[in-house]
Computed example of a mutant assay.
Amino acid sequence: MTILPPNPITVTSSTLLGDVHSTNTYVVRDNGFNGQIGDQTLLTYGDTLYKDSSYSDTFYGIVSNSVAQPTSNPLQVFDLLLNSQGWPEQFCPVNAAWGEDNTDYAIGISNVMETSPGNGILFFLKNYRPNGVNNIIGAGVATVTLDGDVPSCTRLAEYWWDASTEPWYGDICCVKFGTYIYAYGHGPSQVYIYCCRVLTSNATDLSAYEYWNGSSWQTERLYDVTATESVFWEIQSGQVIWSKYYGCLMFVYLDRFLDNQVNAVTARYPQGPWSSPVILYKCPAGTPAGSIYGALPQDNYDPTGKTLVCVYTQIPNDIRAIEVTFT
């Protein structure tokens, strides 16, 4: 039986709300994945640069990831982990035992996904980037634990999937659907996106993961992947969420075509098939081509799903929020 994707979504309006800043520190950063453990929404970020109150170009420091929680205002977030100088700590840390330091190594992280009360996981990328040149080493899983409202993050291994021969599972995002967690990631060529899944109860067990081969799920890991096994292509960034308003999965994303627009597609199942894309927001005329990245939905503001806040990063590190209203 052929499975058809849902009808494409329709947009009534989209509005630029403004720049997103922290209420308790001065930083600029990128991304802004939306995750949840219980009633706690966790926003996870990439490179986080310390600034002064005037946001000058003076360099004070940087960490490759951080975590915050939203406020009722989409333009304001609250940083949860601060160091003794009052700047965000690195949430998913480097580990000296694996030859890592904050000078040459970065850890990129996905959204947090709940696995049990007070606990969750996220997916990470180990990146060796001396002088700012990226060399993706591998992808893996880290646990996230809440102590009250304060989260902590622990990597389960240096990495699980070798980035030179396997997809970078989770570097796009992860989503819970039924009893499984699904993770999406680029392949070594960075042209196609691949998907794996695991029972939520077994999310910390590498041997329990299954891999989409283009027609079915298999327990054998995928190597030397091609277009056949992929679920998306030419995606820069994005996150899959469940749209209560449309009653289906929705992937909000930015493609790699330098068109400065935030798109969305829908599907009934995590592996697709996916609908035709719809433009949620297009940057104003005059925006330099390819100057935005990190388009991500933040669906905690409207439980009905009729409106959706999304963020994107304007180069170099300015996160901006938009609000989309669906028909």
Score class of each variant (00 low, 15 high):
Met1Ala: 13
Leu4Asp: 11
Pro5Val: 08
Thr10Asp: 13
Thr12Cys: 04
Ser13Gly: 05
Leu17Asn: 10
Val20Asp: 11
His21Trp: 15
Ser22His: 12
Thr25Val: 12
Tyr26Gln: 13
Val27Glu: 15
Arg29Gly: 06
Asn31Asp: 07
Gly32Cys: 04
Phe33Leu: 01
Gly35Val: 03
Leu42Glu: 10
Leu42Thr: 09
Leu43Val: 01
Gly46Val: 10
Thr48Ala: 10
Lys51His: 11
Lys51Trp: 04
Ser56Val: 02
Asp57Trp: 05
Asp57Tyr: 06
Asp57Ile: 11
Phe59Val: 09
Tyr60Arg: 15
Val63Asn: 11
Ser64Asp: 15
Asn73Thr: 06
Leu75Glu: 12
Gln76His: 14
Val77Gly: 07
Phe78Met: 14
Asn83His: 05
Gln85Trp: 08
Gly86Cys: 08
Glu89His: 03
Glu89Ile: 08
Glu89Phe: 00
Glu89Gly: 02
Gln90Trp: 04
Gln90Lys: 14
Phe91Ser: 11
Gly99Tyr: 01
Thr103Asp: 03
Ala106Asn: 10
Ile109Ala: 07
Ser116Phe: 05
Gly118Val: 08
Ile121Arg: 09
Leu122Asn: 15
Phe124Glu: 12
Arg129Glu: 14
Arg129Asn: 14
Asn131Arg: 12
Asn135Val: 10
Asn135Glu: 10
Ile137Leu: 15
Gly138His: 09
Val144Ile: 13
Thr145Leu: 06
Leu146Tyr: 11
Asp149Tyr: 08
Val150Leu: 15
Ser152Leu: 02
Thr154Leu: 03
Ser164Val: 07
Ser164Pro: 00
Glu166Phe: 01
Pro167His: 12
Trp168His: 13
Gly170His: 04
Cys174Trp: 01
Thr179Glu: 11
Thr179Met: 00
Tyr180Ser: 06
Gly185Tyr: 02
His186Asn: 00
Gln190Tyr: 05
Gln190Arg: 08
Cys195Glu: 12
Arg197Thr: 06
Thr200Leu: 06
Thr204His: 01
Ser207Thr: 14
Ala208Phe: 01
Ala208Gln: 09
Tyr209Gln: 02
Tyr211Met: 04
Ser215Pro: 00
Trp217Glu: 06
Thr219Lys: 13
Tyr223Ile: 04
Tyr223Gln: 03
Val225Met: 03
Thr226Asn: 11
Thr226Pro: 02
Glu229Cys: 05
Phe232Cys: 11
Phe232Gln: 05
Glu234Met: 09
Ile235Tyr: 02
Gln236Phe: 08
Ile241His: 07
Trp242Ala: 06
Ser243Tyr: 08
Tyr245Gly: 05
Phe251Thr: 04
Val262Ala: 09
Asn263Asp: 01
Ala264Cys: 14
Thr266Val: 15
Ala267Cys: 10
Pro270Val: 01
Pro273Trp: 09
Ser276Met: 07
Pro277Gly: 03
Lys282Cys: 10
Lys282His: 02
Cys283Ser: 08
Gly294Phe: 00
Pro297Ile: 00
Pro297His: 11
Pro297Ala: 06
Asp299Glu: 10
Asn300Ile: 02
Asn300Pro: 00
Lys306Cys: 06
Lys306Val: 02
Val311Asp: 14
Tyr312Ala: 03
Tyr312Gly: 06
Gln314Lys: 15
Pro316His: 06
Arg320Cys: 13
Arg320Tyr: 10
Val324Met: 02
Phe326Ser: 02
Phe326Met: 01
